[in-house]
């Protein structure tokens, strides 16, 4: 065996060690904060004011009870977030599939123009239309209601694009033709044949839509004003703007944990398909 080959072998070994060290550091950077959050959510206020300790406290249940009895309607907030995010995810995936199907399976006059238009508006952020949006919702008497936070999910260019890409690889038009010959109506074909075939893409996009709606702060904060209608991110902002020094810190940590951990748990269950979904979204064409 000649020398250069030996060098290369050592090189790989050394590189592997470096790779593991970097990965462990990054893992630490990603998880440390949530570990501290979890530890602190189990400790009492007086315990916390003495300084940090990596050991779990015994106050988990007390903090939980205090949070539930506190002034912020957190359970209601979680329910509101859940309703909005859930409804958005369902509407978004179903109608994005429908839009993608219209472009994929049919041939009509302005098809290419519409497709190009959707691609062009894909990256326009919702914030730049927020002013007109809020004014229009006011005129339509939809302020302080969930409708402006749910219905716009029907027109989601990014989800549409993903569905379109997926259809190109997974929905042969011959199947649609066969259904037509069997006498199935177009709408029925879409619901009973196309949607089931789109299940993997729908699942991935449902998760992403749910999470981004669940985490959304900007628009809900402009629309929702009644306390019992507010979503979790708005309640977090309220917690931040309150005079937090007077707060029971155990309860504050519990509140943050309350809004973060549901997503973490769901993620841990579905992580494989989520990570794959991100990769698929990136490689286009």
């Amino acid at each position: 065996m000649d020398n250069s080959n030996l060098d290369k072998g050592l090189g790989i070994h050394a590189r592997r060690v470096i790779a593991y060290i970097v990965l462990i550091v990054l893992t630490f950077l990603c998880l440390f904060w949530f570990y501290v959050l979890f530890v602190n959510a189990t400790r009492s206020h007086s315990d916390l004011s003495k300084g940090f300790s990596p050991m779990f406290g015994t106050n988990l249940v007390t903090n939980w009870k205090n949070l539930m009895a506190g002034t912020l309607p957190v359970v209601r907030g979680m329910l509101n977030s859940f309703i909005i995010a859930g409804a958005s995810a369902i509407l978004c995936t179903y109608f994005s599939s429908m839009t993608a199907y219209a472009i994929h399976a049919y041939d009509f006059k302005c098809k290419n123009a519409i497709f190009t238009f959707i691609l062009m508006v894909m990256t326009i952020p919702t914030q730049v239309t927020a002013l007109g949006f809020v004014q229009l919702m006011g005129k339509m008497k939809l302020m302080d209601s969930f409708v402006p936070l749910i219905v716009p999910a029907i027109a989601a260019p990014v989800t549409f694009f993903y569905m379109k890409q997926y259809m190109e690889s997974a929905l042969p038009l011959a199947i649609v033709e066969a259904a037509r010959i069997d006498g199935s109506g177009e709408f029925r074909t879409f619901n009973t044949i196309v949607v089931p075939m789109m299940k993997p893409a729908i699942a991935v996009q449902a998760i992403f839509t749910f999470v981004s709606s669940w985490n959304n702060y900007f628009t809900p904060a402009l629309i929702l004003t009644t306390d019992t209608k507010k979503t979790l991110p708005i309640l977090i902002a309220q917690l931040r703007s309150a005079d937090w020094l007077k707060f029971d810190m155990g309860q504050v940590y519990m509140m943050i944990a309350f809004s973060i951990f549901p997503v973490i748990i769901v993620y841990l269950i579905l992580s494989r398909s989520i990570v794959q979904g991100v990769a698929l979204g990136g490689v286009k064409g």
Partner: peptide
């Protein structure tokens, strides 16, 4: 049917995005 399936997107986009813009 292409137009029919496209309608929800177009209407919602028009009302909630384009008019506000």
């Amino acid at each position: 049917w292409g137009y029919i399936f496209l309608a929800p997107f177009v209407i919602v986009y028009l009302v909630f995005q384009l008019i506000p813009l």
